[in-house]
Design a protein around this nucleic acid. Structure first.
Lengths: 260, 260
DNA sequence: CAAATAGTGTCTATAAGACAGTATCGA
DNA sequence: TCGATACTGTCTTATAGACACTATTTG
């Protein structure tokens, strides 16, 4: 790609690049921050009956340095000079959470001046979806898991987003503009769930149709009719012939995702 | 947002920020590059008949400096330290093309190392849609219009993208990874045309349904059935009662976009 | 048996696809 | 009249919504 043409200063491309000084532009930093969603499938026993409640959750990291020391943030870090943005997202995610080789896609780039008090930081946000049961969390940097937490999400259609860790409501406790990133990630997920297969990145290997429908309902923020849902999803899944062993009602068949 | 907590070095947030040195990270630059689409409505006279052919086009700038001196590129430039990314896109677009106050949306961020030979440059790509008849182009930096050109696009569904200026096929003549940016812009436009109203940013104030359908066909890359198209578009447009004055066939009614 | 959840059948309402037909201009 | 494009009517087909119904388990 060497260009022998001479520019207005009489330089060829090679000469131009040798004299190019990167310090002539304003100092900026670029970071990647990842919105990691997973499903919390908690099974409770109540009055001799199993009750399983699905929750959509996002992975947060307690900041152990300024700014926003002690607040919850998305796992993020700076982009290295020799890696692609996708690689940076995967590396940073591994360093902060121990997650490896997960589904990611680029979400949006946030660059409002003042979004970080240190300096101008442009953040390329990523969306990640995992089946939580396949991973064990660990902040590789600090060797602690105590500063990682799954934050529960409520996002009914036409209602504002609510975030909660345990009993604590925490939109106001979230560092930087990360609450906005979470919201954008949810909207992307809600939008793409109907015309892509990304939802299966959240699912275990085997699942029931009812379980899958509940996840569509949580992400879509509205109830669905079972027969309609079953018709639409049928072409994407394969029955295994195995059944759950619930108690007190008809067992439900387990399915696996059928890759197109 | 001042945090009185002390970190592992015993510093409060204020103290930490005062000592923060931005030079500790690798040097990166952030640019914005905008894919500007418009419709070329060329009216030709042939055998005493009017023939109007619609073309989808993208705005290119001939580079007058290294690297890629003399090649075609998207209008782009570096992000200033005190502006948002959207503001940077609008400012750079104005400086390079004279366009002002146009519809833009963020497209995708490209950051492959080596995509620019000068240094590591992260490019936030934008998509812009304009009604070309409302603007006059001018490279404000150079005061020349000769280094601006509308490049014709052919992108049939399931076929590769083709770009042409006059008789010259030019994917190989395009600077940086800008051919990829154009392709992503087209895919975004093709995707959003069916569930948003962004196409009307490409339209003049008044237009016929046939004209609008042709633009859907160019962007979608496939022919549509007129009755189906008319049914679907009816709720988005209002008839004006005025008619075109074509010759040799029934005049067609002019419509305007009805904002929701 | 009842209670609970899994799963199906089917009618209806709505929208998409296809194509024939009518409308209105100039030559 | 014809040729051309604008526009409409309507039949057929596909899909979404609604809801009643059957199936299989435990207590």
């Amino acid at each position: 790609m060497s260009n022998p043409l001479h520019d207005q200063n009489g330089l060829t491309e090679k000469e131009f690049l040798q004299r190019y000084n990167p310090e002539t532009f304003d100092r900026l930093a670029v970071s990647v921050d990842t919105v990691v969603f997973s499903i919390d499938s908690r099974i409770q026993t109540q009055n001799y009956r199993k009750l399983d409640e699905q929750k959509l959750t996002v992975l947060l990291v307690k900041r152990n340095e300024h700014p926003y020391l002690g607040r919850w943030s998305l796992p993020g870090g700076f982009v290295g000079s020799q890696e692609t943005l996708d690689q940076a997202a995967q590396r940073v995610l591994h360093d902060k959470t121990g997650l490896d080789n997960v589904y990611i896609e680029q979400l949006y780039t946030f660059g409002h001046p003042g979004r970080d008090p240190r300096m101008r930081i442009i953040s390329v946000a990523y969306l990640a979806l995992i089946d939580r049961s396949q991973y064990r969390l660990m902040n590789v940097d600090t060797q602690k898991i105590t500063d990682l937490s799954w934050c529960e999400i409520d996002f009914p259609k036409n209602d504002p987003l609510r975030l909660r860790i345990g009993d604590e409501e925490l939109p106001s406790q979230i560092a930087f503009d990360h609450a906005t990133l979470i919201r954008e990630g949810l909207l992307r997920l809600r939008n793409k769930i109907d015309y892509t297969d990304i939802v299966f990145n959240l699912m275990p290997e085997q699942f029931t149709i009812t379980h899958l429908q509940q996840i569509f309902e949580i992400i879509g923020g509205e109830k669905l009719l079972a027969p309609v849902f079953r018709r639409k999803i049928a072409c994407k899944i394969t029955p295994t012939g195995e059944y759950t062993q619930e108690r007190g009602h008809r067992p439900s068949q387990l399915y696996v995702y059928r890759r197109p």
